[in-house]
Design a protein around this nucleic acid. Structure first.
Length: 485
RNA sequence: GGCCCGUUGGUCAAGAGGUUAAGACGACGCCCUUUCACGGCGUAAUCAUGGGUUCAAUUCCCGUACGGGUCACCA
């Protein structure tokens, strides 16, 4: 085992957008492979023709690439084990299903959908704890089977489950789990349309593609014994299983599309930064060894350890995710932040003649979500109408009266500044503060209000003055004086 | 309902047969500060429950409750 190259796969169905729980599975799957220098494979599971959604495959590629979960083999990049789209592997599954029939491990079933439905109805009416196929076709005489096939009677292929004993499979997290074979249904391997069921295609592909570790959602835990039996029927080695618990909205509900918080794209739209999304959802159901919990994808690869995975469901907490997002934003370089933030700044600020470097530096520690930005910078284009009440500040002991006085002191000082920048504004104002013997806030609070018309801004009065430039700053101060007079 | 799985503060969670039961988010308070933040410090808050086993159990075992999953020609 130890000498075998690790190969993992992410195998989504093209049925819509990327669910956050699914994405987390992809992350763990990717990390597990990369941590061990192995291969991460992308396989598209499109065996359900009816549920196929146009464009969904591109959405999968797009999301994974955006997240940096680059696959070594897949439909678009190729590889030695293709094709990587199940609908293109149809013949392979049929071949292996027939092999099982020859081995006596599977059989043709000619029961109609109607018959099965009726059977289930009856079972439900009798309140039977078990609702399985009654194995009507399991022991059909060979002649009957051949005659039906010759006559083109539609059929499915079913797995012949043992009726006694138990099956035990192993999950890395849960350990050994045993179930009674009697409760196992003779599951369908090949559907009437010739397509394999998920359960069958999965086993075939995982084996043929040399997958060593399977990470998947907890909902497959109950099916795992059936897969084991299939591997056993073929005489193949069973991969290592890791079943991960669900991400919940609350204690009893999974994250769902109804709540608008289930898809990767939802969070990007809400202003979340992709590395932070990955970081947070990796933390749902997995705990790092140390105390740091801020990680890039590469750091997650280094840090990841299976023993940190949790066996119980985790409730999604948007507040924590927001906090992690804020932390990631703070860690961005000035240039990275500029690139990410400018589009949001441009939503409310069209001016060119502002000092964006100062603005960005003031904005960065105050931004939790990129979508916070437009509202924070909306005063730059145009000073909003504001109430003189803003000049009241209890802590600074300012009022409209003291503010008028302060603004009148400030105006000539700023007018005298030749080289307009943070330092020169700062030293000029502080010289005045010292000269007048007033508190910082006496001067600076009114300045901030006059420049922004808002109770809270990115940066204080000095930064705002530097951002807005000399002419505009003085105009706004004059407006303040006029408004207060 | 049968079967499978789970249960540490409001949330994510570490932990180990003997600990003052980590840490993070959130809440609250204080400090810093030209606003708001950032940052720093601190406070409150957790082992679902009943039985065992043991000198000792939150940790091991069994039951109960609660929650989740599953029982498709869906994945």
């Amino acid at each position: 085992m130890a000498d075998k190259r690790i190969r993992t796969r992410f195998a989504p169905s093209p049925t819509g957008f990327m669910h956050i729980g699914n994405l987390r599975t992809a992350i763990f799957t990717y990390i597990l492979a990369k941590k061990n220098g192995g291969d991460f494979i992308l396989r598209i599971e499109d065996t359900d023709l009816e549920r196929y959604v146009e464009g969904a495959v591109e959405k999968i590629y797009d999301t994974l690439r955006t997240c940096g979960l680059n696959w070594d083999e897949g439909p678009d990049v190729g590889g030695d084990y293709g094709p990587y789209i199940q609908s293109e592997r149809k013949d392979i599954y049929i071949k292996y299903a027939k092999e099982l029939i020859d081995k006596g491990e599977a059989y043709y079933c000619f029961c109609t959908k109607e018959r099965i439905d009726k059977l289930h109805e009856e079972q439900a009416a009798q309140n039977l704890s078990l609702r399985t196929y009654d194995r009507h076709c399991r022991d059909l005489p060979r002649e009957v089977v051949e005659e039906n096939l010759a006559n083109g009677v539609p059929y499915v292929i079913r797995q012949k489950m043992p009726t006694e004993g138990t099956t035990t499979f192993r999950d890395i997290l849960y350990g050994d789990i045993s179930v009674e074979n009697a409760i196992l249904d003779d599951q369908i391997l090949i559907k009437a349309d010739g397509m394999p069921t998920y359960n069958f295609a999965n086993v075939i592909d995982d084996h043929l593609m040399g997958i060593t570790h399977v990470v998947r959602g907890n909902e497959y835990l109950s099916s795992a014994p059936k897969y084991d039996l299939l591997y056993k029927a073929f005489g193949w080695e069973v991969p290592q299983y890791i079943h991960v618990e669900h991400i919940m909205r609350d204690a009893q509900h999974k994250l769902s599309k109804r709540d608008g918080d289930a898809y990767f794209g939802d969070f990007v739209e809400k202003g979340f930064y992709v590395p932070a999304i990955i970081n947070y959802i990796a933390l749902l159901g997995w705990a790092p060894k140390g105390e740091n919990e801020i990680f890039t994808l590469d750091e997650l690869v280094k840090e990841f350890d299976i023993s940190g995975l949790s066996k119980s469901p985790a409730i999604f907490d948007i507040q924590k995710m927001t906090a992690i997002n804020a932390e990631h934003i703070r860690r961005m370089s000035h240039e990275e932040f500029r690139e990410a933030a400018m589009p949001y700044i441009r939503k409310t600020c069209s001016r060119e003649d502002v000092d964006f470097d100062i603005l960005l530096d003031a904005l960065q520690p105050r931004t939790e979500l990129f979508t916070d930005i437009p509202e924070k910078v909306d005063f730059i284009d145009k000073l909003p109408e504001y109430s003189n009440d803003l000049y009241f500040n209890k802590k600074m002991k300012t009022s409209p009266e003291t503010s008028l006085e302060a603004l009148k002191m400030i105006k000539p000082v700023l007018e005298g500044i030749e080289d307009w920048n943070s330092e020169s504004i700062h030293s000029a104002l502080f010289a005045e503060i010292e000269k007048r013997g007033v508190k910082n806030g006496f001067m600076l609070w009114p300045l901030r209000v006059a420049l922004s018309g808002k109770p809270s801004t990115p940066g204080g009065g000095i930064e705002l003055a530097a951002i807005l430039g000399k002419a505009d700053s003085l105009a706004r101060i004059e407006k303040g004086i006029a408004q207060l007079s």
